[in-house]
Amino acid sequence: MNSRLASEILALSLEHLELVAITIGIAAAVALPGAVLLARRARTRRWVVGFANIAQTIPSLALFGFLLPLPLIGGIGKRTAIVALCLYALLPILRNSLVGILGVDATVRESAVAMGMTQRQILWQVELPLAVPSIVAGLRIATVATIGTATIAAAIGGGGLGVFIFRGISMVDTPTVLAGAIPAAVMALLADEGLEWIERRLSPA
């Protein structure tokens, strides 16, 4: 492997990582407060989760296509890619956070009420700490999925390891495809392992 290829792999890997980090950052910043707000609102929750479920079923290439012509969030480039990736990352984070918060043992919640805790105290001191492993699981699932989906971002000029893959496809050159696919796969495995380790560490064992 020549050094030009190696340095291009490194550069695109970093770009890929950046796409993923920004995506997960934004998705978490929206989904976590969203989960907190929706935890106490059963009706709204059903609507929002239902809508997010539908958004999830749109094939990613099609979603990039839909976004391209839109003003502000559309167009060729990273921004459009990140918007699309965020839409996919939102649901697993939102859903797992809700599962964590709503899954807190009813007797524990009742005991918190009986001790005279306010709803706010129950949320911050009891429900969220107990939901942390589930929240981290959501982040893990979203991160791993985003690492994969982000390879498609290259189709609309998002950059990242997908550049190799699309180049390899157009050149019908397997090694070039692999130059994108292998680092992406390794990245996904590492993220999965790392976040799973954090998840275990944070479990109220």
Binding site: A112, A114, G116
Partner: peptide
């Protein structure tokens, strides 16, 4: 105020109901 009321009653819950975390 339900919060004040409950804090003036010490409640030993059947099967303890401790906070696991």
């Amino acid at each position: 105020d339900p919060i004040r009321l409950r804090r003036r009653m010490g409640y030993v819950i059947q099967d303890a109901g401790l906070f696991p975390h």
